[in-house]
Design a binder for these strands. Sequence first.
DNA 1: TTTAATTCCGTGCACGGTAACGGAAAAAAA
DNA 2: TTTTTTTCCGTTACCGTGCACGGAATTAAA
Lengths: 350, 350
Amino acid sequence: MIQSEKPTIMDIARLSGLSKGTVDRVLHNRGEVSKKSYDKVMAVIKELGYEPNVYASLLARGVPHRIAILIPEHGPESFWALAEEGIAKAVEKVGPLGIVTEVYDYNQRDAASFRQACSRLLESEPSGVVVAPMFGFDTQILTSTLRERSIPYVFFDTKQDDEGYLAYFGLPEYKSGYLCADQLTLDKSAAEVLLVRVKRDPLRQSDPTVIRRAGFMDYMSEHYPGCIVRTLFIDPYDPERTDQELDEFFDAFPGTTHMAMFNSRIHLIVPWLERHPGRVTRVVGFDNLKPNMAALSRGTVSVLIAQHPDEQVSLGIQALSDHIVFGKQPVRRDNYMHMDILTRYNAEYY
Amino acid sequence: MIQSEKPTIMDIARLSGLSKGTVDRVLHNRGEVSKKSYDKVMAVIKELGYEPNVYASLLARGVPHRIAILIPEHGPESFWALAEEGIAKAVEKVGPLGIVTEVYDYNQRDAASFRQACSRLLESEPSGVVVAPMFGFDTQILTSTLRERSIPYVFFDTKQDDEGYLAYFGLPEYKSGYLCADQLTLDKSAAEVLLVRVKRDPLRQSDPTVIRRAGFMDYMSEHYPGCIVRTLFIDPYDPERTDQELDEFFDAFPGTTHMAMFNSRIHLIVPWLERHPGRVTRVVGFDNLKPNMAALSRGTVSVLIAQHPDEQVSLGIQALSDHIVFGKQPVRRDNYMHMDILTRYNAEYY
DNA sequence: TTTAATTCCGTGCACGGTAACGGAAAAAAA
DNA sequence: TTTTTTTCCGTTACCGTGCACGGAATTAAA
């Protein structure tokens, strides 16, 4: 045996006076076992501290475990693309364990397509599921089905109020806003601040940045009550319009020296910033998308706060895999991940 | 089989007109095979793209792989204690793969004890080794032996000039000093800076902070050429003396407002700092030791740059394990890890 | 050419679990 | 009580490799 003296199912069988077939049935509780035998076996298992041999199990099982992942469709340079990198990373880790992943994607602005993805996912009967819940209500339908079939699932990015998830991996949203404000005002000279926000599709059910904004505003009123904070909305699909609106804004409020955005789209305003060098002294954004990182290394953006969606999914998949393969329960259910402060001097190592 | 249609040694045996016993001998080239058969088998292996089934292999092998780790003895709240946490973390990951770890420790200031640890390690005939090279020369003796026996080894923390290591995990030292200076001067008000250094045992062969200091100084002369940087040496084992020297220093140079240390011992000067609140406006140190983190959350320390020795060992062990168990080559040989900027607002998530 | 020594190779069991199969035992129906 | 059904359990054939053992084939020695 792998570890010198680990008990095997044969040991359990012997000690409980039954056969290994019965022990196996108990271990996978697939019925056809009398209560008496069940209890007996369980007692012996506990007494011996039995742990199954993963190798033998996987070898005998033959068919790989499938983990299904539910994320929105997306372009190549987006938050979700980062997440996809995390999937690849995780696959490398758990692939050798005989685990395969399948991505189900849906249109971010279309609840129907989300539902469709859900039903495709359920049909495939995966061993586990990773979800970034976008549509709250429909997600609950999904998860309740998963619970019925006792398929474990983990959330990342956004958490759902739900009693059945195996684990959650995400950012402490409020704190991230707080941190953002701290980083923005580090040079102690902030008097007029501009927050740039993105016009949202009214259909979308949740805006993950709302709590983040609250944290930001709280920091500001605690530390810089005199500072003026203004907001400008831009259309992510219309760069020219964006430029124009920024021009108008800065005509109206030329004293603005600090800017922040709460989502991953800071790169949208980078062109304007670089056409008006020195106009803004400090810029803080979120997420290490490539264009953001480029702007950071050029000095256009002062700080990026990275939430590493890649790590979130990756850890999610690994937690799921550990649960499925080794029967491990995650150490923590809610995992608030670190927020990394990226500057031009440490960014290249992320 | 795990992946549906992978060839097995039986397939190879059949196609080469030999038996699995012979194929096995070829695979582990332990002789007793005619050249003709050997070539035939190799050809078939290549043709089919055969990859051994690790599960079956490990299962049949029976005896666990041992990874030996070589680090200095240490107290509970130290850099190396963090590393030890990383070992524990890694064990959790690779333990289920039938891998056990063994720590060999030695006296940090005694090359003889290092050599002794090395020979104990070699006697145990591990499948792989993780080293933080302290004594350059003696480390080379160790690694050359390991190469002879073709035992893979990885470095962490410090790298050795050596052609045989499997991987290295550590910090970009120069950049970390650069970053340190940047973080220290973020408030743009640094005019007189104090660097606190620890008196070193002259026996020690390497000072890992020397490159870090170079990065720091370069940043300062590039960005704040007018800023005065002074150095004070303290004795880590004599806190009263330390206090006194700090007192004297600040009597002599009362204009000093910024302080930094390049090793993990910033906690040594925290008591003094807290007895003189407001005296110093910005303090930067390294490493997330508990006392450092506590000082950070109290605001005594402004920024900690975390190099996460725990992650370094952990990744090292995992890379080794992947190599031993799955025959994987690491993606990168030299892995420069991220330097995390910890402030009181994001520290609790590390 | 016979015998002894080598070299080479096939067979078979073990590793720890999985799951299909079929039959014994117990419970329900007749 | 006999028959049928249901519940429960043991047996067995794998999964893909590792390795010991013994025998066949080849070569060297007699």
